[in-house]
Nucleic acid binder design. Structure first.
Lengths: 337, 337
DNA sequence: AACTTCAACGAAAGCGCTTTCGATCCAGAG
DNA sequence: CTCTGGATCGAAAGCGCTTTCGTTGAAGTT
């Protein structure tokens, strides 16, 4: 490894001047600056990030944490979509992402501690559980942070407009003539799940549609199996719905599976609308009509929010709500009386 | 931030002893060791990773790079599956992953340079293009590295058994009575694509099945659209196949779409088998029969291989071939004459 | 000629930690 | 009572870089 001292020796300047030249300080002449840069290139010099960070207290890294409540981790399309978008944009600003582990050598450290240990400049969290103590700890610390997919009054958050998502869905279904509309909900410990329930309830009330007994069924942790199970309950009802708004695409797909298995035709006998617009939604049969979350935009806004805090060196608390859109496909149709 | 000097002051020992106590050196008594650890906990001491790395030349980080030939990046289920598995296992060994960017502040640095700059202990690469110059550069360097999804004679690689994958597929189709079997291939600049072609050709030859004109069609970069296009070509043939082995699930799904659009029933009129076993495969209609790549196992083996090199401090060149399995679902059926 | 100004450079301390190499002290050996 | 060896501890250098502050010399002022 070649250091600034090597460059100093070679060029005849001091290490101070070398450092300044490399960092484009004003108090070094054009000529020596060029000379130093040239020999740096020639000798294949690379700065040492650790030394730099130690000295400047800035690491140009961002810690990324996602809670894996249901064990899917990065494999969930929503997560990987957001992370990828975030990565791309953070990269443009010069930051690397570090995917942190918790159970590092020094046992029993929290994520916050771990990020502190790593000296990250900021933290990006994707978490759906507002009560997660690990996330709380990070939010309460003074480090710049942006959290995605939940709401919080004490930090920067960005999440989809889950409320109007429900409105959109119900409105659409209603416009197709449906009135017996059920909701397969995400667990209410999960922020998005809770709000989507509210969206559903509000929209139903607004149109004076009754939420019949059993029409609000908990679909658990958003998995395909959960959705399948929930649909069973719905179809077991004495007076089953003609349309169902499902809080997640995976669940919706599971729901379609059981409906089909039970002989229902979709959408003729039962309209289904999902939430997320994962890639799969476009390729199941029938193609799933759904509420699209804009993972790209979420990543973009999250980056901006975090950068702002890092630069200003102060936390800013704000809510960034990303609009959702209705993706009209094939799983819903006009109610035939 | 509180340092070992603060601990030294508080406990009355030297910083040397504090450091030794924290690192469990043998030449510090049980009693003082405990005292130091206690006050460290009490004062909320956290080591500084940058200082540590600077001093020890070990960063406990692994650089991760994936080539985004087709722009999907981490969003592709295979990538995110492997990365997630790798992360989990590297974490157990005490390593954090750093997702690197190339165009950092210092413009025009390569990935290798960037990883060197970051001082990673090793590199994990997911790349399908054996010719990628960036990857070559890394392989040729002396840093521990493991590359996934391609073959190479000069480093540790782990990839699926693409050859027997083809064999498996053709064998299965053949056992169902098919002889007119086509192949929608991945571009041959992509390692997996190339080998799967070979697997197809070998298996066909082995059974003395003719590869008719136009039966080997290039599906490009593994996208759904690519697959759809390729299937058009196949169905335009004067003597179209009765079964097709597709080099990737996305392509297979695209292929199914056009086949269905053209009025073919699957599997009655046309059997289709894919490659990957992405989640979606189980939920399209009909459920896609496919060759499953074991992303978990790939991640596990990659971690092990990399750890080994890091510990032994020397590159080891070896090939780890992960078995694939046939996932029999609904998109293939016995040929009805 | 004496003085101010400014551009260009360098000495040195500091960032927080590790590690080598002594130094010290005391128990037990001779 | 002296010597040896082992157990504990610390001084100091070093990792590679940044940054403050001072120094130098030449150009410009009066």
């Amino acid at each position: 490894m070649i250091t600034i001292y090597d460059l100093a020796k070679k060029t005849g300047f001091s290490s101070t001047t070398v450092s300044k030249a490399l960092n484009n300080y004003p108090d070094v002449s054009k000529k020596t600056k060029q000379a130093i840069i040239d020999t740096a290139a020639e000798m294949g010099y690379l700065p040492n990030a650790h030394a730099q960070s130690l000295s400047t207290k800035k690491s140009w890294t961002i810690g990324v944490m996602f809670s894996e409540s249901n064990g899917v981790g990065m494999k969930h399309p929503f997560f990987s979509g957001v992370i990828e978008s975030f990565r791309k944009h953070a990269e443009k600003e010069g930051y690397d992402l570090i995917l942190a582990s918790r159970n590092l050598r020094n046992r029993g450290t929290s994520y916050l501690e771990h990020f502190l240990y790593r000296g990250v400049d900021g933290i990006m969290v994707i978490c759906s559980d507002p009560k997660d103590p690990q996330v709380q700890e990070m939010i309460n610390s003074s480090i710049p942070i942006v959290v995605i997919d939940m709401s919080n009054q004490e930090c920067s958050v960005v999440f989809s407009d889950n409320l109007s998502g429900g409105e959109l869905a119900i409105n659409y279904l209603y416009s197709l003539g449906h009135t017996k509309i059920a909701h397969i909900a995400g667990d209410h410990t999960i922020y998005a799940g809770k709000i989507r329930i509210k969206g559903y309830m509000d929209a139903m009330k607004k149109r004076e549609l009754p939420v019949r007994d059993g029409y609000l069924v908990n679909g658990g942790l958003f998995s395909i199996q959960d959705g399948a199970l929930a649909m069973e309950k719905l179809l077991d009802l004495a007076d089953p719905p003609t349309a169902v708004f499902v809080a997640g695409d995976h669940m919706a797909i599971g729901a379609m599976e059981t409906a089909k298995a039970r002989g229902y035709r979709i959408p003729e006998d039962l309209s289904i609308i999902g939430y997320d617009d994962i890639e799969m939604a476009s390729y199941v049969t029938p193609k799933l009509t759904t509420i699209k979350q804009d993972t790209d935009q979420i990543g973009v806004r999250a980056t901006q929010l975090l950068m702002k805090q890092i630069i200003q060196k102060k936390k800013i608390v704000t809510e960034e709500i990303i609009p959702v859109t209705l993706m009209e496909r094939e799983s819903c149709t006009r109610l035939i009386k």
